[in-house]
Design a protein around this nucleic acid. Structure first.
Lengths: 344, 344
DNA sequence: ATTGATTATGTTATCGATAACATACACAGG
DNA sequence: CCTGTGTATGTTATCGATAACATAATCAAT
């Protein structure tokens, strides 16, 4: 920390008490106007910056929130952060950014560090490997405001902001069914994550509703990144060598990119041999050689909504716990088998 | 803030002094082993979390750094942040993220807020409109460790981490010259920014060295985003209607995308009528219909290097001020007129 | 037995800002 | 002239952790 001026130093310079300086700088009304001016001008000339560390210690409030995300360098999350930042900026909060790198252990240590820094609340999107639900629950029960976004854990007393994963997954699967595809595979995420469960449910229910055979063997866990998608698809193609699926619904776009790579490497073409659809509308999705049909999530709005909900919860302990679902948009491109220019 | 246990509460429960509890939890060696165990176990069962706000007040050190960037939702910056985060995580610092949204006023207010929060240092990439250099200088002289990255202000006592803008710009301009193009335009940034100045200098020097006529009228300020690039290019095409440039070097990729749009709208084709090259290697650059020849910046490394330099400066006040230039890589694609598959 | 060193613990003061209480003075109303 | 009501200011205590100093108890050495 650099050489910083304190209230007492200003007070000594002016021959008055620190309290009067404090009152003057906070523009309280029971201070003489002349004194106020002298103080303000002195504070300015001495380069005074209020010490929020001291202020926070007394007020038990830091005007700081912590954000825990599984990956920073990912278009979806950086857009969410933009949304969060817009709200925190307006409401005068600072934002601690931490990265769990999809590791639950790192997530826990970040949360502990944020607690020590006495953040007023935490926004979190769970790591792929999140498992120790009690850990979150304990902290929430202890009274630290918590809001989950995107990758949520519902039912443990914290608000959640996510998208209508279930409906969107159902719709995009039905779109594949509409193409006449009968064997449709799914690259899934971990079952203890609400988001992954909902996407899988949407997929299964769409099959059921259209009287298609649901085969457990056509579901492979890929996780959220390209490598995971690639490996899962390879496994799937090996497993179904004699009778590969006609289409694949990947739980997000990076996983879909990985799957596309595996499909091409196996000598098959997209969408003529195997159609692919994703979820999340990555920046790359519309630009790749066979543009990806996917679901666009309102990332910026997710961030804004989650941040608002958190700060409302901080400001007012009566704020109800809520599960907010934002609307997705289905983006039809060519990887599903549609001709260019088709829209839903 | 939630209900938090203090040292004194633990001390009361055990009938000992707060000081002993403090010593036990910090594993000092002059505490009885039995006491230590009792304290640690009690602290755990009471859910104690150390209060870093109080600790920081005494130690005048927060283990916190502030990051100020012009735009969060931009692949380059989110990669830089990843790099920064990797270092701060390892070194046990927390990271305050703030967004200047390319506005100098917001930048100043963020820096003030960070100072009030008593960050141990600041990492900053200047806003496009940065102007009040004295402001930075005052803070740096006051002793707050500062490291600029990417968009730097050199010569005011802070370390800088950036790329060899000058050389790379010269090389990529020479590449255009190698194609036989004689009238080459440049979309530039603000002159008070070292980065923009260096890129322009590289462009001009390349022209000079190859005895090409340097025309002031072929330089238009575009700024760093797509809209800016679009408007600048439109202006340039109007201005040179009778004799448009044969190639354009844009100071970054988004500006190049905007320029490409304007060129196509004017009915000309890329690269046959007008070649375009950019700078920064955006994720989209290799995917667009005419892949963009550009300069790849080691974003992750920039973040890592800047964060390391900052923390080294914080830890050791003798750490010298340094200007570190990382190496770029020229990525040859087709927008310059090269056939697919060519590399430098 | 007395002294000094060593170990375990307690007490007080501090970081900077401010809430809560105390004081001092001016002026109006009886 | 006295009391009450402001107004402007000062003093003290507090937030939680810990550095610096103080004390008490134990044990070895003289």
């Amino acid at each position: 920390m650099s050489s910083n001026v304190t209230l007492k130093e200003i007070a000594n310079e002016l021959g008055i008490s620190a309290m009067t300086v404090s009152r003057a700088l906070n523009d309280k009304n029971n201070v003489d106007e002349k004194t106020k001016k002298r103080v303000v001008s002195k504070a300015h000339s001495m380069g005074y910056t209020p010490n929020h560390v001291a202020k926070s210690l007394v007020s038990r409030k830091t005007f700081t929130i912590g954000v825990v995300i599984p990956e920073i360098n990912h278009a979806f999350f950086s857009e969410v952060i933009s949304g969060i930042e817009e709200v925190t900026y307006k409401r005068n909060y600072q934002l601690f950014l931490t990265n769990s790198a999809e590791k639950h252990e790192r997530e826990k240590s970040s949360i502990n560090a944020l607690q020590s820094k006495r953040v007023d609340g935490i926004l979190i999107s769970c790591a792929e490997t999140a498992s120790d639900i009690d850990f979150y629950e304990r902290i929430i029960k202890n009274g630290l405001p918590f809001v989950f976004f995107d990758r949520c854990i519902e039912g443990i007393g914290a608000s959640c902001v996510s998208v209508n994963d279930y409906e969107s997954s159902k719709i995009i699967t039905e779109h594949l069914i509409g193409h006449g595809y009968e064997s449709i595979a799914h690259l899934s995420g971990p079952d203890n994550m609400t988001l992954a469960r909902n996407r899988k449910r949407g997929y299964i229910d769409a099959l059921m509703m259209h009287d298609l055979l649901f085969q457990e063997s056509l579901i492979v866990e890929s996780g959220f990144n390209e490598t995971g998608g690639y490996n899962a698809m390879k496994k799937l193609l090996e497993r179904t060598a004699d009778n590969p699926p006609r289409a694949v619904f990947a739980l997000n776009d990076p996983a879909a990119f990985g799957a596309m790579k595996a499909i091409r490497e196996s000598g098959q073409s997209i969408p003529d041999d195997i159609a692919v659809v994703g979820f999340s509308d990555d920046v790359r999705s519309e630009l790749i050689s066979c543009p990806l049909t996917t679901v666009r999530q309102p990332a910026f709005d997710i961030g804004k909504t989650a941040a608002k909900k958190l700060i409302d919860t901080i400001d007012n302990s009566e704020e109800p716990t809520e599960t907010i679902k934002l609307k997705n948009e289905i983006i039809i491109r060519q990887s599903c088998g549609c001709a260019p220019g088709v829209s839903l």
